[in-house]
Write a protein that binds this DNA or RNA. Structure first.
Length: 800
DNA sequence: CAGTGAGCGAGCTTCCGCTTGACTT
């Protein structure tokens, strides 16, 4: 099938539009709509539906399980306005064209549009394009198809399965967990937490082993005749004793070059950005969180600077490849250009869009100061992807030791042609990099049989490293590898598991560790001990105790859902549905029956989730000490609730965990509350409460903040703190109406009224003169705000 | 805001995947 030449398109098309009202073309994104309207011109009105316009009702799962899993769809409240507008436009227009994205979700959106706008899916025109260019769009318009119901059914199966898993599993947690927060579980989020949980346990179980790295230093003349030092490595020695023996055996040795190998090498540029790789590189190079990257990318997209930012495709349009080629040739010269098409490694990719790239390759940067660094990263990556390989020369020299049979190896790397490295080099994650690769240097020119002047030889103790904890971006990478989640959900998934308290993002301080060095110099061996910092991590994802116990629970009772390959397996079945080889309701039925049994079995037989761990026996009372989950989080407990005497409880610190806390650390926690003694007539006490550590004095409470430890803070520190915090509190106060219990306070967003637990913002015109407000005026403002509450979260729907 | 930790039970929570804004205690 060959496409018509473009110039014929309008001629073909016109007759059918004449005198009729405009055509309505619907796309998903409003930014796209604007561009396309310009391209298509007068005959088309282009509107956007802002993604899905219908979803399953929330009540009773939104599915009639007994009626073949029949879905009950509704237009969510926040989509009512869009739907109303689309209906009005559709009414006025001659014909409606559906141009949603070319993937499973896009197809379903088209079908929902048919249902809502009263269009017949059998006849309504459905078109797709992967790039927003005149050619692509006009060629798409010249070859419309209709909605593919098999693909729609695959989406419905996906949607319904996710609803079933989420809405059946979450209530199981509500029943079995004593914590009252709104817990949740789902096909994607629960596996994401599992990944974090398992990494943590690997790290906890890890035992570092050391070996001695042998490194010899020599001098030689470089190309300019200047003497330079270079190093060569020997075989690692397993222990300090072995290292010592080896260094002894080298005393008084001569070192001779016996062999030199020179091999060419090359480096190839990475593919253009997808959502996932953009998130990874922005995290590694710019330190951005996944959500920050997406926010900035969205802005760049909306202002027309880059193509769509939620994509799993590495493909560049012809237009983009040409533009890159031109830019590279003019900026760096012809030899730096090499046209490349990249293939997606990921099987789950749906490739409805292009890769993320600049709209105009000749724009090297953008005005917007927030988005500039991200834009430049995208620009460089796109350029590099169309540039020549970098050419290297790797040299490996073997060095003989005259006094023993061992051999040393010196290796070096020289860049012969920089190629794409002129613009861009991809960073690596910690876990993929090795020590050796990091320190390939340049070797001076050497010759076989050359005698090398010896400086010294070192045996340095090196420890194996545990795998690093995940960053947001490396978690996204892992999820993508497993085919779990989509470009539009990576950032929200991370927010969800953080919000639910399954995972925390924080830093970990390193610990000091001694390591040994043996140095052979002037025929003498010196033994040194030095210190290094190890295990420090920044902005990493840590599982909480909640995350760990929930993961264990779900793994025990729902191993199928928690399996890393569950999504991949059901994706194969969705594909079968999409191909028309499987009925979607049958597929869901096969999944649901055993799953429902698991749910019922769990509700009936599973114990409450406690995650209890015995730590030892309290010497004083002779009672058992355990760590476990309580109603308000992880805690330690002395004694049993069935004992005559009430058990003692203490909350774990943020950095402690049920799994790793020691008996001594647990006992330490029972030192609170501490009484520091009298100050201005009443005792100062320190404790940890619902909102963290605090000082109590004269029946007032002051937060302790992070820099002070309630276990160690002294009376000398606490006294002045009370005074300081008390005055700060007073300064925050503008006015107090004692009897009515109304306070007028100054906050970070300006002055506000506080009555009981509720806050009321002052109207703008009253903010300046807040101190002059009378009780009546204040009461009026409260009533006013109550009557017109500030719109924040969309209100609850009726009937659900 | 601030000491809790058992159990009862009303009424509530919850999923994933498309899309942007509205708006900050």
């Amino acid at each position: 099938m060959t496409g018509r030449p473009d110039q014929n398109f309008r001629a073909d098309f016109k007759p059918f539009l004449t005198k009729m009202a405009k055509n309505l073309l619907i796309v998903e994104s409003p930014a796209k709509a604007k561009t396309i309207e310009k391209i298509l011109g007068e005959d088309f009105e282009v509107k956007s539906c802002y993604g899905h316009i219908r979803d399953l009702e929330k009540g009773d799962m939104g599915i009639d399980i007994k009626d073949n899993y029949k879905p009950r769809y509704i237009v969510p409240e926040d989509k009512e306005k869009v739907v109303k507008e689309l209906k009005a436009s559709a009414k006025k227009s001659g014909e409606v064209w559906l141009a949603t994205d070319e993937d499973r979700e896009g197809e379903a959106i088209s079908w929902h549009l048919c249902e809502v706008l009263g269009l017949d899916p059998i006849t309504t025109k459905r078109i797709v394009f992967h790039e927003i260019t005149k050619t692509a769009i006009e060629s798409a318009v010249s070859r419309p198809r209709t909605v593919d119901m098999n693909l729609v059914n695959a989406q419905q199966a996906r949607r319904i399965l996710d609803r079933i898993v989420g809405f059946e599993l979450s209530p199981v947690l509500w029943r079995k967990m004593s914590m009252k927060n709104n817990l949740s579980a789902g096909r994607v989020q629960s596996v994401a937490v599992r990944i974090i949980a398992e990494r943590e346990r690997e790290i906890n179980a890890f035992v570092a082993v050391s070996a001695f790295k042998i490194e010899a230093f020599f001098t030689a003349k470089d190309v300019t005749g200047k003497a330079v030092t270079f190093s060569a490595e020997g075989k690692r020695q397993a222990s300090a004793e072995n290292a010592d023996v080896f260094l002894q055996s080298c005393v008084g040795a001569d070192y001779t070059v016996t062999d030199i190998q020179v091999k060419p090498g090359k480096k190839t540029p990475a593919a253009p950005f997808t959502t996932s790789t953009l998130q990874q590189e922005a995290s590694r190079k710019l330190g951005y969180s996944v959500s920050r990257t997406m926010l900035l990318a969205q802005k760049l997209y909306e202002s027309g600077k880059i193509t769509y930012m939620r994509t799993d495709s590495v493909n560049l349009s012809e237009l983009a490849m040409d533009a890159a080629s031109q830019q590279i040739r003019s900026q760096y010269g012809d030899k730096y250009h090499q046209a490349r098409k990249f293939k997606n490694k990921n099987e789950s990719a749906q490739e409805a869009h292009e890769a993320i790239r600049p709209t105009y390759m000749d724009a090297m940067t953008v005005e917007d100061s927030d988005g500039r660094r991200l834009y430049e990263l995208i620009w460089k990556r796109t350029m590099a992807s169309q540039m020549a390989d970098a050419e290297l020369e790797k040299t490996v020299a073997k060095i003989q030791i005259s006094t023993n049979k061992e051999e040393l190896t010196a290796s070096g790397e020289v860049l012969k042609f920089d190629g794409f490295l002129k613009v861009y080099r991809e960073d690596r994650d910690e876990e993929d990099s090795t020590e050796e690769e990091d320190q390939e240097g340049v070797l001076p020119p050497l010759a076989v049989r050359q005698q090398l002047p010896f400086k010294e030889m070192r045996a340095v103790e090196r420890f194996t490293r545990a795998l690093p904890r995940y960053t947001e971006a490396s978690l996204v990478k892992k999820l993508e590898e497993l085919g779990i989640g989509r470009p539009s959900t990576y950032a929200p998934t991370i927010s969800t598991i953080l919000k639910r308290g399954y995972v925390e993002k924080r830093d970990k301080e390193g610990v000091k560790r001694d390591f040994r060095i043996l140095v052979l110099k002037n025929d003498k061996i010196e033994k040194l001990q030095e210190q290094e910092n190890t295990g420090a991590e920044k902005s990493k994802l840590f599982p909480t105790d909640l995350g760990l116990v929930v993961t264990d629970f779900l793994k025990q009772y729902f191993d199928n859902i928690m399996d890393y390959h569950f999504t991949a397996r059901i994706e194969e079945e969705f594909d079968e549905v999409a191909q028309g080889r499987m009925i979607w309701s049958k597929m869901i039925d096969d999944f649901y029956n055993p799953f429902k049994k698991d749910v019922e079995n769990t509700i009936e037989n599973a114990e409450r989730i406690k995650g209890e761990r015995e730590l030892g026996v309290d010497a004083q009372s002779g009672k058992k000490v355990v760590a476990r989950m309580g109603r308000y989080g992880p805690m330690v407990q002395i004694g049993d609730v069935n004992d005559e005497e009430k058990p003692k409880f203490a909350k774990l610190k943020n950095t402690q965990s049920i799994e790793t806390i020691s008996f001594d650390e647990a006992m330490e926690l029972f030192r609170l509350p501490r009484n520091l003694g009298p100050f201005e007539g009443s005792d100062i006490t320190v404790n940890i409460g619902r909102f963290g550590p605090y000082i109590a004095h004269d029946s007032k409470f002051y937060s302790l903040g992070k820099e002070h430890d309630p276990y160690t803070i002294s009376f000398e520190t606490a006294g002045p703190m009370v005074v300081e915090k008390r005055t700060a509190k007073e300064q925050r106060t503008i006015k107090i109406f004692e009897k009515e219990k109304i306070q007028l306070l100054r906050g970070p967003y300006g002055p506000y009224i506080k009555q009981g637990l509720r806050n009321y913002k002052l109207p703008k015109e009253k903010q300046e003169t807040a101190a002059d407000l009378t009780l009546e005026e204040v009461k009026a403002i409260i009533e006013d705000v109550k009557a017109n509450p500030p719109k924040r979260v969309p209100r609850k729907k009726k009937g659900n």
